[in-house]
Computed example of a mutant assay.
Amino acid sequence: MHDNRVLLEARIERVIRERIKPAVYRRTAPLAIASWTVDDEPVPFDVAVGQSYEHFTVGGAWGKPWGTVWFHLTGGVC
């Protein structure tokens, strides 16, 4: 059997350099988050989309246990 260690290591290095490393850190953009808390579930999308969503702070409480929270995220693509 042939020893292809050099070729194999070169291919691994290329994949890391061309695919993995560029994907580790990506540019970010601001994202606005709003939520609508529901005491009952399920709620169909066509009902949820027409509700009044309030500003949601990252790290804030999501509502009661076993409740439902719908999120509306708005951002831009750079």
Rank of each mutant, 00 (worst) to 15 (best):
W70N: 04
V38D: 12
G67D: 05
V77K: 07
T28P: 09
R17A: 13
D46I: 01
P22L: 11
T74P: 03
C78N: 12
A32T: 11
V43D: 04
V15Y: 13
T68D: 03
A34G: 06
F56H: 01
G67I: 03
P22V: 10
N4S: 09
G67Y: 00
M1H: 01
L8A: 08
P65L: 04
V58N: 11
V24K: 13
I16C: 02
L7D: 06
V77T: 01
R5E: 02
V49W: 12
R19Y: 15
I33Y: 01
H72R: 15
P42T: 03
G75S: 01
F71W: 06
G50M: 03
V15R: 12
E13Q: 15
T37E: 15
R27F: 11
S52L: 14
A23Q: 10
Y25N: 12
G50T: 05
R19A: 15
V69D: 03
S52F: 12
M1Q: 08
E54G: 10
E9I: 08
I12S: 06
E9G: 04
E41P: 12
V38C: 13
E13D: 15
G63L: 03
Q51V: 11
M1P: 00
R5H: 05
V38L: 11
W62C: 04
T37V: 14
L7R: 07
E54V: 14
T68A: 01
D46W: 07
W36E: 09
E9H: 06
G63Y: 02
A23K: 13
S35Y: 13
L8E: 07
P42C: 09
D40Q: 14
V15N: 08
A10D: 11
S35L: 14
H2A: 08
V49K: 15
G67T: 03
V38G: 07
A48W: 04
T68Y: 01
W36R: 11
T68W: 03
K21E: 14
T74R: 08
Y53R: 00
V49F: 09
R26M: 10
A61W: 02
I16P: 05
K64N: 07
V43F: 05
R19C: 15
A34N: 10
D46M: 11
A61C: 04
V38H: 05
E41S: 14
M1D: 05
G60P: 00
G76F: 02
F71K: 02
T57W: 02
V24Y: 09
T37A: 13
K64I: 09
R14G: 15
E18M: 06
L31H: 10
Y25C: 13
G67H: 01
A61L: 09
V6Q: 00
D39L: 11
G59M: 02
G76E: 06
W70Y: 14
D39E: 10
R14D: 15
V15I: 15
A10T: 14
S35F: 11
G67S: 05
H2P: 00
V6C: 05
V69R: 10
D46E: 11
A29C: 08
A34Q: 15
G63S: 01
V24H: 14
E13N: 14
G76Q: 09
W70A: 04
R19P: 04
R26L: 13
A34M: 15
F71T: 01
A34P: 10
D3V: 02
W70L: 00
T74N: 06
S52W: 11
F56K: 03
G59K: 01
P65Y: 03
A29I: 06
T28I: 13
I33C: 09
